[in-house]
Design a protein around this nucleic acid. Sequence first.
DNA 1: TCTGGGGTCCTAGGACCC
DNA 2: TCTGGGGTCCTAGGACCC
Length: 403
Amino acid sequence: MSPRDLAAASRECPILHVDMDAFYASVAVRDRPDLQDVPVIVGGGHRGVVLSANYLAREYGVRSAMPMTRARRLCPQAVVIPPEFATFTAVSSSVMENFRQVTPLVEALSLDEAFLDVSGSVRRLGSPYTIAEQLRARIYDEQGITCSVGVASTVAVAKLASRRAKPDGVVVVPPQSVTAFLHPLDVGELWGVGEKTTQMLNRLGLMTVGDIAHTPLATLQRAVGASLGAQLHQLAWGQDRRVVTPRRGADEPDKSMGADETFGRDTDDPEVILREILRLSAKVAGRMRTARVAGRTVTLRVRFADFTTITRSRTLGDATDVTQEIYQTAADLFTALGLQRARLRLVGVRMEGLLPRAAVQRQLVLGARESGWSEADQAVDRATLRFGAQAVRPATLLGEGRP
DNA sequence: TCTGGGGTCCTAGGACCC
DNA sequence: TCTGGGGTCCTAGGACCC
């Protein structure tokens, strides 16, 4: 189709899904001309996975989330670059700012993708297709990286369309073409259908979105549950009530915050494990205090050497952001497991049921009077602000990481 | 040296309350 | 002395997303 036809076809398609192409890899190589024509993988670490791979690396079968060991086997000549999240975040902010100049209705899904509702921008800027191309040109000029855009009448179809547009393209799916576009797709392309659900659906002989569309709702729901079944049936017919919702602000905090870490090597040493639980508790509590939230439920996560994973949680009487309370609870949960030197691969600590701290101020003040730990945390926060995260930590963490 | 780290949502059973 | 029904909270596990 000509640009003029695409502009006309996009008239009833106010939803844009913009997705940066191989984002981390593109950012990592854009200032490195020497890497322009070689396979590049962003990722690494000791037991890490691929975060992003450029298209040259993908030709060898390298994919996101693949274990690095496998990626290196598939493409030994690839250059591996460790991620620089500060840079990614900065580039992302600029790109999102470009989006907001088009419309206030921007929903960022992650650092590298966003939905835009441009209904209110058409008069000023032209058709949704025209806006998509303008954005792509501006982002390339300013950031030196490419992106792809799906243009459709619903969020779900726009998201699928951007995938078809990759790399460096635009795909418009007008309303009258939605089912023709959707029905040939593999079931796994649908939002919410991952590996397990794909297997489940395939076992029922459902391979494509069209197959799902022509399966009775009750059958789907029996297979994958009431909620997902209903969702899939609607999506398969292009029905999607979701609207573009700008990200929640400070008034609506995250629902949970957590940290986990895979050990460099599996360990069965309770001292090592408890020290890690303390470090993670301090990390989570610090982030909660920065976000001015407190939480009631402490969840400990343990992954064994064979990758099986369990969780144990305890809900406290009052919400807390106090490192020592979180650590004590997590440590109790760990001890209660009664592990007989089982080898662990990972531990994690997560706080759920988060509330704005203003809503629990009274309890925190009382808690602080009793324990004194809250004052201790505040002193740590002040010192961290002045001297950096490595400057202050619990005594049992001294001697780690630094001379 | 197979399989990160940050999240969200759903399901299901049992406790508990009215 | 024979068996309610609904709502909410808590816990554990699992699937999925980027």
